[in-house]
Design a binder for these strands. Sequence first.
DNA 1: ATTCCCGGTGAGACATTGTATCAATTAGAC
DNA 2: GTCTAATTGATACAATGTCTCACCGGGAAT
Lengths: 143, 143
Amino acid sequence: MTDRALSPRAQRLRDAGHKLTNARLAVLDALETGGGHMTSTEILNRVNARDASIGRASVFRALDLFTRLSIIRPTYIDSSMTPAYVMLPDGHHHHIICTNCNRVIEFEDCGLNRLAAELERRLNVQLTGHLLEFYGLCDRCAS
Amino acid sequence: MTDRALSPRAQRLRDAGHKLTNARLAVLDALETGGGHMTSTEILNRVNARDASIGRASVFRALDLFTRLSIIRPTYIDSSMTPAYVMLPDGHHHHIICTNCNRVIEFEDCGLNRLAAELERRLNVQLTGHLLEFYGLCDRCAS
DNA sequence: ATTCCCGGTGAGACATTGTATCAATTAGAC
DNA sequence: GTCTAATTGATACAATGTCTCACCGGGAAT
């Protein structure tokens, strides 16, 4: 199963020295096919629908790992109980969260590459991704 | 207790039509004196140290309220179990999270005002704040 | 100052979600 | 195929957020 075409993210996992296990690939697939924002419970359900033998713990471990690799990022959307995980397709993601109805509006083109480069130079860090969130009222709620 | 000098944030609460109760003021004080990033547990401890009669639920309710008012914002730093709440002093906050050691490095001046104004116009939204997070390795971990 | 009302509160049982432990398994290098 | 360290699954457990409901009190009106 090593030479089958790997998704770019799976490749990224391997390149970082991690094994491509069933559990990890299932979580990755759940994330990729599940739409933009998923809670851990939604991910668990989706993973177990595909392979019921995969354990709870492994799913959470995979989510932690992916977060460290900047493949996903947990963010608070409506409940403070559990985060929603968003994909960072090219290392970044941007959205607006309505503080009234919790609707999420995504947008592109944050123009932060320049800032990222400057921070890397000035602070001597190695940045792999970012998340930009705006808060406020969406068009429907702004009446 | 109405005419005592109110912190700008307390004023904001009242202006939005919410009561300035003991519980809310205690949570606000905990946040303001507690440093940048606090988990709910740290906030609870701090609030109860000041006034043991304040209940769990009210603290969480206050945190939800402040989030809706863009006074604070929950973000996941090391655990995905509980968020850390960051203040949005002028409606915004920016930091870098090290994906290896979870250190948080704050920085100023994101230059996002222009983008915010453009989004408001284009999408017909009313933005009250934003949070910008970069992920990567801090200077110590980048070796 | 007093009254009234409705938003807000506290207690605590409860539900949900994440983590620790550990023996068993497996990916991937050789 | 063999080996080994990384990873897993099961489960018990810990931590965290929410719900309900009777009661309270902030603050506007009077």
